[in-house]
Design a protein around this nucleic acid. Structure first.
Lengths: 123, 123
DNA sequence: TATCGTTGTGCCTTGTTAGACATAACGCTG
DNA sequence: CAGCGTTATGTCTAACAAGGCACAACGATA
């Protein structure tokens, strides 16, 4: 089996609002990543434990938000069909990861201060 | 009149999860800020256009999450009563602002890239 | 051609959330 | 002491989101 997804945990998983049509958060990004690994929407949904319909809806939202498709799908054929990320989809993941990494790196100090205020450890 | 609230717009308004009892986002912070300016929960709620009950609930969630009160309230008395931020409340705002500023400053480049992907301007 | 596992939709039910409304307690003020 | 504007709380309902189920279309494969 493929190692699928294995990433380090971040404290901050940003949600970005662009205009009023697009909002990108950890859920959609994780889903894209899983689709990329599985080459299938339904397989990705199963893997993430969410219903196919919801997965499809999330992706459809992205497609319509950007005006261009984030994944390309095929119904029927080998294995019943499948889904592949478009270049836009790959770039989206890439950019989000870069943003997330930079945020977590630079925000670490203030984050710790916030946790101290709460008297708890973040998990 | 007091200048109330007048802050520069940030693209990223982070929501931080600390443990499982605390989650802090732009809504609660803005509310705290308004309570601080108005010295009243109900006035702050009116100003932000949300029902009193919701405002109170948000604050109560913070109070219980932190184990210590974020604001101090008084029912009855001059003007019917009022609410004042505790030192913890002030620190919370301060820390959140610092985090937000740092995030937005350091993430600007990736953010622009994301907006370019969308072919839109963030607003 | 029958089968299979996908994608893509629709419908209905349920669960959660948000809001409206009502009301009590409180303590200055006139 | 009556009035006022708060804080604080309960209840009820409407709106919305989530999930479940069903099913058609598709195209390689056997």
């Amino acid at each position: 089996m493929k190692p699928s997804i294995n990433r380090l945990k971040h404290l901050v998983r940003p949600r970005i609002y662009i205009g009023k049509a697009i909002n990108i958060g950890p859920g959609k990004i994780d889903l894209l990543r899983e689709v990329d690994a599985m080459r299938s929407i339904s397989a990705a949904a199963r893997s993430l434990g969410l219903p196919y319909k919801r997965a499809w809806l999330l992706i459809d939202t992205l497609n319509r938000g950007f005006g261009n498709p984030v994944i390309e799908t095929a119904a029927g054929g080998k294995g019943g069909g499948g889904a592949v990320l478009t270049p836009l989809g790959h770039q989206l993941i890439e950019r989000y990861d870069a943003l997330e990494a930079r945020i977590n790196k630079s925000a670490d100090k203030e984050l710790q201060a916030l946790c101290n205020l709460a008297g708890k450890t973040a998990d």
